[in-house]
Simulated scan of single mutants.
Amino acid sequence: MKTLIKFEEAAQVILSLVLFAQLPFAWWVFPALLLVPDVSMVGYVFNSKTGAFIYNVFHHKAVAILIGVLGFYLGNEYVLLAGIILFGHSSMDRMFGYGLKFDTGFGYTHLGEIGDLKK
């Protein structure tokens, strides 16, 4: 099952690349911005509950889609880019086993404990 989920997430990363290709930005912008959402880990400086909340807001696909749709309807390519980057990043993270966080600690995710993807 985990292999199937990884393929599904990989397909979503590819979708984000296809959507990005429709925008007028240089090719290097996508990889340059792809890890920016991980800045949200700064919340863990305060505590696990704050860290998980901030991290999950930046890694929730519904938030990414909402931002992307907002950018599309506003005709704002930068907001649309932000949504695509958030979506692609979240899909990439899930492909590698980094899911949404529980407030018990960074390593506890909705996909299981980080590093527990042996199957």
Rank of each mutant, 00 (worst) to 15 (best):
K2P: 00
T3L: 01
T3Y: 00
L4E: 09
K6S: 13
A10L: 15
A11R: 04
V13C: 11
I14A: 15
S16N: 10
S16Q: 05
V18C: 08
L19V: 05
F20M: 00
Q22P: 02
Q22H: 13
L23F: 06
A26E: 12
W28M: 02
W28I: 15
A32Q: 06
L33V: 02
L35E: 00
L35C: 02
P37T: 03
V39P: 05
V39L: 15
S40F: 03
V42E: 06
V45G: 07
V45E: 14
F46C: 09
K49T: 15
T50E: 13
A52Y: 07
I54Y: 09
V57M: 12
V57N: 04
A62H: 05
A62R: 00
V63T: 06
I65E: 00
L66T: 08
I67R: 07
G68T: 05
G68I: 02
L70R: 01
Y73T: 11
L74Q: 07
N76C: 05
N76A: 05
N76I: 03
E77W: 13
V79S: 07
V79P: 03
V79E: 10
L80R: 08
L80G: 07
L81I: 10
A82M: 11
G83T: 07
G83W: 01
I84G: 04
I84H: 01
L86V: 04
F87K: 03
F87R: 05
G88C: 07
R94T: 11
M95K: 08
M95C: 14
Y98E: 02
G99W: 05
F102N: 13
G105M: 10
F106H: 03
Y108E: 15
Y108M: 06
G112T: 01
I114L: 12
I114H: 02
G115H: 07
G115C: 06
D116Y: 07
K118W: 09
K119E: 14
K119Q: 11
K119T: 08
